[in-house]
Amino acid sequence: MRRSWETIRDLPAPYLLATAVLAIHLLVALTGPLWAPFDPVKLSAGPPFTSPSPDHLFGTDNFGRDVFSRVVHGERVVLLLAFSASGLAVLVGASLGVILAYLRNWVDESAMRVVDLLLTIPPLILSLLLLSALGSGYVIMISTVAFFFALRVLTVIRAAALNVVTEDFVTAARLRGESAWSVARREVLPNVMSTVLVEFSLRTGYAVLFIGGLSFLGFGAAPPTPEWGLMISEARPYVTNAPWIVLAPSLALASLVVSLSLFTEAISEALGLGSSRVRDV
């Protein structure tokens, strides 16, 4: 743990900057609603299409809502949705991955065939169809995104766990007569924990992107929620005369995803897992 901290400290400046930006995002999500100047859904907080000023830092939108307050309140929505989706995906994917790697029998074999097949389903197209068929509530959206992400987490964690289950200490634990559950939890899981952490961080960034994209297309958060993807799509018609309405949530979204992605690189290097993976959503 100490070593990891020292490695993080010696990381190049962009990583440190990214971590700082990410910390600000988290802070805004936690405390934002306490200090945001306006109610994010309050109409006519000012005249519509006011350009940025001390009263309205990011101006106002077509309904006269304060864009700054909407962006600040949206942080919580965006992060909560992304964390739920990636958390669920990692929980399900990592558990199944460890179990399958531990089993290494026909169950594993046939399950992986099914996973291989499901992996080649285009996530965005199918999500759009499923969300319009099942209704676009948050629970359905999170489960849909988590389903597609869990498949990818599963393959990564299973591969990492396969390297562990062949180690002597696992065989020893097995020969001691420990139950499968206890071997998986006490011997295998701690050794793939760093991969699990990196996966969680990586998938959270992807989830922000994916859910933002769904909302942008009108299949995610419903108006008047201050979700950034939705805000960008609602502001699109006014891009010529009021660019700040679209710029503010765009920059918030971009800085969140970039800092999350650099942070993932940083912890991945600090934990000695290397970097550069295949983009797979």
Partner: peptide, 22 residues
Amino acid sequence: VLVGTAIPEFVIGIVLLLVFSV
């Protein structure tokens, strides 16, 4: 490039739209 891989395509699109057509 690393930053570029992370920026969502719809944000890139919006920014290009703002700069080059607006």
